[in-house]
Amino acid sequence: MTAAIEVAIDDDLWSAIGDPTRRRMLDRLLAAGGGTATSLSDHLPVTRQAVAKHLGVLDRVGLVHGSPSGRERRYHVDEAQLARAVAQLSSVGATWDARLRRIQRIAEAIQRRQDEHDRTAVTDQPEANDTRRI
């Protein structure tokens, strides 16, 4: 993991998937195997116009693709692009977990060394140890 990868957040993609309504739309499209603005608005507490606008955002970042279907466009989820977005989201939490485990290891090693030092100091030089503690 390099800084470049970590910092290179694809803002548009994240923004697109970050909206709760758009996430519900993706859920619905995945569950139903596709849908139109009309069919989606039937299942969501938003207007058909709002759904159409959200579909436009998802389309622009490649999360959905539309094809003509009667008087509307029928959309389906691009699972490869969705996988990419989810991988980005997941990697951030995972990298912090890894960092925290390293913090734990280092802190515990230092603590063990200090405890060892204290034990030695108490045995050998009680006075020096008292001074150090102050």
Binding site: A16, V86, G93
Partner: peptide
Amino acid sequence: ELGWEAAVLEEHCREHIEGWN
């Protein structure tokens, strides 16, 4: 971006990810 909070899902979902569906 609002999308970021979804990153906290990582720990909850890791065991359960069987597919994007």
